[in-house]
Structures are given as structure tokens and as C-alpha cells.
Computed example of a mutant assay.
Amino acid sequence: MTTFHRNLLKALNRVLADKNLAVIRNEGGLASQIAFWALGYEFAQLGYKVKFDNSWFKASGLDINGLFPRNFDFPKAFPSLSIDEASVFERFILKKLNNFREGDLNDVTAPVYLGGFYDRWKLVQKHREHLYENFSPDSVYFSEKDIEILAQIKRDENSCGVHVRRGDLASDHPDYGKSLQADYFLRAIDEIRTRRKDPCFYFFSDEPEWIKSNIVENLGPEIRHVVVDSNGSDRGFIDLYLMSRCHSFISSQGAYGKYARILGDPSRLIIEPSSQALFDKDDANVIVLEV
């Protein structure tokens, strides 16, 4: 760090109300928001005053293709967890003068604007227990259909939550790999059926009609299934809660299936695609299918 940079940070600390301030850029779907919260929680444990820049949700708030909304749903999913918002001045001045976008987070010096993505998955796992204990959407958000499905999932000892990410990942993506077609999900369903007696598959997706046409049509009459199509993108946090109550999971390239396991029981069986496999491959309850 240069002398100029060191003096600049000292000057910023004098004009900012909060010392050791770290402003974290927040964006993306609920899984991404959870990961940014985990980053903030980690920094708070280290003595930083953490605030968030949530301006992306007003300025953009859409998926990669600009089609499906990405709402700021973290407060609805985790009402007891604080996520203080930075002022316009705080985020503007720090973003301009000390924007730490990449590198070793151990090298961060406050006051700072954290404008990158970093390796947040490890932090989500590290703070899983705290997230699990506070994952409690208010009952006002649950429709009668949601309550009915939740009760059914809880009754069924072999419920399997299947997340089918379509939308912006319906085509190949440089960061997420090849798009997953029906074949992957049908193979995963067969894999679950070899390990669980008479499982019931609960499908969650931003394109439920695609599931009905491409997956359900290829299921035998003996395979129990429910396509959960009552919640749109604006109620994805309810779908995540319902899925997290399942007893096994099939994940797509997207993070919802993985986060459902994290926010439910992380020892439960999960199947992941090789293009986006995040869990420990030595875990006997983690199956990675080649795609």
C-alpha cells in the first residue's frame, strides 16, 4: 500500500460516520444475496462495520438475459437478520476511491467498497447454522397451496426437491457450462429411485411448463411427482423454503438446489451436475453426474 493510499483511507475515515466501514455490493437472485450476506457477516465478525449497496435491484434487478426479475428478497426470507444499507454518499465515495473488486480478502483495508464476487460459497457453508436458524419467512407470504405442499413434503419421508434452472441458463453459458436438458434430470431421478423407496419428486423452476412437456411426459405412471407452479420469480424465496424441507435434492447449474440442502439438512442426499458441483465429492451423500 502506498503512502498516498494510506493517507487517503485515513482521510476517508475522518469524514465517514462509521469507522472501519465496509460497503458490499449486493446483486443477483436470492442465493447470491445469501452469499453476499455471508461475506458481510464474516467481515462483521472481524470487526468491520458492514453495510450493503442494494442499488442494483432498483437499477437492474433482472437475470442474465434481462427477462426474469431478481427481487431483493433476503429480508423476506431472513427477517431476523440485519442487512444495513449504505447511504448514497458512502457507496459513491468508497466505490470511487477504494473499490476492492478482486484479490485476497485478507488484504482489505477499511474503509472499503467490496465490489466483486469472491469465493463466497465457503462462507455460506461456514455460517450455515446461523442461516438455517434464521430462515423463517413470515406466514403471511405462504398461500394455501404453499401450506398444502409444505405439509405434504413433511409427511413424505422420501420427498425429493428438484430445481430446474431455465431462463437465462436454458442455453450454454461461459460461467455455468452447457445447459441441462431433460436427460440429466431423468438420469438423476433414476439415481434417486435406486436409493430411496417410492420417492415423490417436487419440481421447482422458473419455467414449469418446460418441466411438464420435457420431464413429466417421460416419467412412468408409477413415479409420484408434483410440479410446484404457484410461485413466480417474485416468490422464489417461498419455493426455496419448500424445497429445503425435502429429504433429498436434485440440483441444476443454478444454486437453489444446493442452497436448499444448506438451509435444510446438509447431510441429505444431493445430485449435482459436473459443470457446477460445489459439495465435497468425498461425501457419500453427494452424487455428481457427468454432463
Rank of each mutant, 00 (worst) to 15 (best):
G40Y: 00
V288R: 08
D175L: 15
P208I: 06
V124L: 15
S252R: 10
I149A: 11
G28C: 04
P69L: 09
I34M: 08
A59G: 13
P69K: 02
A59H: 14
K96W: 01
S32A: 15
P266T: 14
G167Q: 08
I149G: 06
E157N: 11
F57E: 05
A277M: 14
K76H: 03
D229S: 06
H247I: 12
D73S: 02
E207W: 00
R193P: 00
E209K: 04
Q45L: 08
A11C: 09
G167P: 04
V88T: 02
P75E: 04
N134S: 09
I34T: 06
N54Y: 04
G103P: 00
I189M: 06
A284Q: 15
I83N: 05
Q253I: 05
Q181P: 05
L16M: 11
V23R: 04
V50I: 14
E157D: 07
D239T: 02
L81H: 01
D138V: 10
Y41C: 01
H247Q: 14
A170E: 08
Q125K: 15
A38I: 04
S267N: 15
I270F: 00
L62I: 13
N7S: 09
D198N: 13
S32V: 09
F72L: 01
A44V: 11
L269W: 09
L62H: 12
S251W: 06
K122E: 15
E42F: 06
N7A: 02
L150I: 11
L62S: 03
L289H: 05
Q45N: 03
S251L: 13
N26E: 13
L123R: 11
N7L: 04
E133L: 14
I192F: 07
N99Q: 07
